[in-house]
């Protein structure tokens, strides 16, 4: 045992150079000023990214395509995954129509998804708006865009995907919100989980 400890410390000493810095995928997320449905102002990267598991999607309140279903999916995920992650998880839905979707419009929209008030049992869910320039920068940095300007410019063709991960392990993945729910839920746990229990455990029965 003593020998093993000695070996461990000698291997520590053997690493002469300081290890190189990390460059996380989430360091590329735009650090733009955004406002949530309660009118609170945030810097996206500084305030949301560090130390948390995130699920991010794009939406707009008047969407009649994918958003209603995605919203319902997120609501379900929120109630399921809050049991697994507690407050370590944050849901972020940013609008693609910041001109229309002001904080109060988002508040009204959030109320339909039970995200208009603080809850002890559920993780935070912010609906974010900002200046059109900031939102576009955010959208591109989170890879919610299409290379074809015609598709990219057509708001009804927007991505129905969820971006999720956590900044500690810096594992990020995206999935279409339309994949089978059990699959989606277990993938988010596996990729965004901090602990083995969160990733693979059976803690949250009924998930």
């Amino acid at each position: 045992m003593t020998r093993m400890i000695m070996q461990f410390f000698s291997s520590l000493l053997a690493a002469e150079k300081t290890p190189p810095p990390r460059l996380r995928v989430c360091d590329g997320f735009a650090n733009v000023r955004v406002v949530d449905q309660f009118g609170r102002s945030f810097r996206f990267r500084d305030d949301f990214v560090d130390g948390r598991a995130l699920i991010i999607n794009s939406m707009y309140t008047t969407c009649r395509g994918a958003c209603p279903t995605t919203g319902a999916t997120l609501k379900k995920l929120r109630s399921e995954l809050s049991k697994v992650f507690g407050k370590k998880l944050t849901l972020l839905s940013f609008t693609l129509e910041p001109e229309v979707d002001t904080a109060s419009v988002l508040h009204e929209y959030a109320s339909r998804l039970d995200a208009n008030k603080r809850s002890d049992d559920l993780c935070d869910w912010h609906f974010l708006t900002g200046t059109p320039v900031a939102i576009k920068e955010l959208r591109y940095s989170l890879n919610f865009y299409d290379l074809n300007p015609k598709v990219d410019g057509d708001i009804t063709q927007h991505d129905a995907t969820l971006l999720f991960g956590n900044s500690t392990s810096d594992r990020w993945a995206s999935l279409p919100a339309g994949v089978r729910h059990e699959n989606l839920s277990s993938t988010i746990r596996r990729v965004a989980g901090f602990t083995t229990e969160q990733r693979f455990g059976l803690a949250a029965e009924g998930v």
Partner: peptide
């Protein structure tokens, strides 16, 4: 390569 940090700068570029 991100030269100031020396790290691989990864982005899935809009899933493309």
């Amino acid at each position: 390569i991100d030269l100031p940090t020396g790290q691989i700068a990864y982005s899935n570029k809009g899933h493309n």
